[in-house]
Design a protein around this nucleic acid. Structure first.
Length: 282
DNA sequence: ACGAAGCCCTGCAAGC
DNA sequence: TGCTTGCAGGGCTTCG
């Protein structure tokens, strides 16, 4: 099965997909000037601010930054902030190519290309973050990046004390650690042999250690394999949806566990579906 | 402060 | 066949 990301025909951007998108588009944007913002569908997760184009036009792009699953395009007085929601994608395309259904926004560049945003479910957004953009309300309270030196077993252990919520929704909380969505939380807990229903404060230090390492390993592998697909961000569909990483539990309810053969079970935790092996995860 | 539930939206699949 | 219903998802917001 293709990775994580292909479900019901929709690519779900988790952190690896967002990072792959960042790497795919950045080289084509650096040094280019923004000519115009064309918003065909302002009604996204939040409405696109009517004056967003004014903030962007004429500005040179210097980098593309990822924080959690947010993509930031820093400019002089702030940053363009884009979130892909659960069905969004970005790609570079000739400005003259007519937009199709669900292609809601174009960022036109002086190179004749446009950064085109596609999002069937419109859970994503385009917003403006005033400088310094790190203090924007959506960014200010975020926990550490999972692949940074700040996400350690010691940190997770301390953070989870006295927290009685199940470990899976806890791990998916952005104030704890960012960028760990349902798919990767499910896989990391399986790889760590931890029952997703367990209260967060019952995890031992060594279990926190395993969990941190597995989150980092699984995310890193997904980013690595996404790196081979960068060409598809120009002209193609912009969807890094075919990581080679295998999903061992996610979406496999009722199928045998790859480790013990026990049938995988499903449970609802924090409004999200969790698949797990009751034999291997304790 | 914490935890649970609600909400936004569309495409797909299952059930009638 | 064509409807209706349910579900999936991130993450902010609201409620208890």
């Amino acid at each position: 099965m293709f990775a994580g990301v292909l479900l019901c025909g929709v690519i779900m951007p988790e952190l690896p997909e967002v990072e792959t998108t960042r790497r795919g588009i950045e080289p084509h944007l650096i040094g280019k000037q923004i000519k115009a913002l064309e918003v065909r569908t302002p009604r996204l997760r939040w409405p696109v601010p009517p004056d967003l184009g004014l903030k962007l036009e004429g500005q040179p792009l210097v980098s593309v930054v990822r924080r959690a699953k947010y993509l930031l395009f820093p400019l002089d007085s702030g940053a363009l902030m884009v979130h892909l929601g659960m069905s969004g994608s970005l790609r570079l395309i000739d400005s003259r190519v007519p937009p199709e259904k669900h292609e809601h926004v174009d960022l036109h560049l002086d190179s004749g290309m446009a950064l085109r945003y596609t999002d069937p479910r419109r859970f994503g957004f385009w917003l403006w973050a005033e400088a310094p953009w790190e203090t924007h309300p959506l960014l200010a309270t975020l926990g550490p990046e999972p692949l940074s030196e700040h996400f350690t077993a010691e940190y997770l252990f301390a953070k989870s004390r006295k927290r009685r919520v199940a470990i899976k929704p806890f791990l998916m909380t952005n104030q704890v650690v960012v960028g760990v969505g349902n798919i990767y939380a499910t896989e990391a807990l399986f790889a760590s042999g931890i029952d997703p229903r367990r209260s967060a404060d019952t995890l031992t230090e060594s279990e926190c250690q395993r969990l941190v390492l597995n989150v980092q390993r699984i995310l890193s592998q997904a980013i690595e394999s996404g790196g081979t697909t960068l060409k598809d961000f120009v002209g193609g569909d912009g969807r890094p949806g075919y990581f080679q990483q295998q999903l061992l539990v996610y979406g496999r309810k009722g199928q045998p566990c790859v480790q013990c053969g026990n049938l995988l079970q499903e449970v609802q935790l924090g409004q999200r579906t969790s698949t797990f092996c009751s034999q291997c995860q304790r």
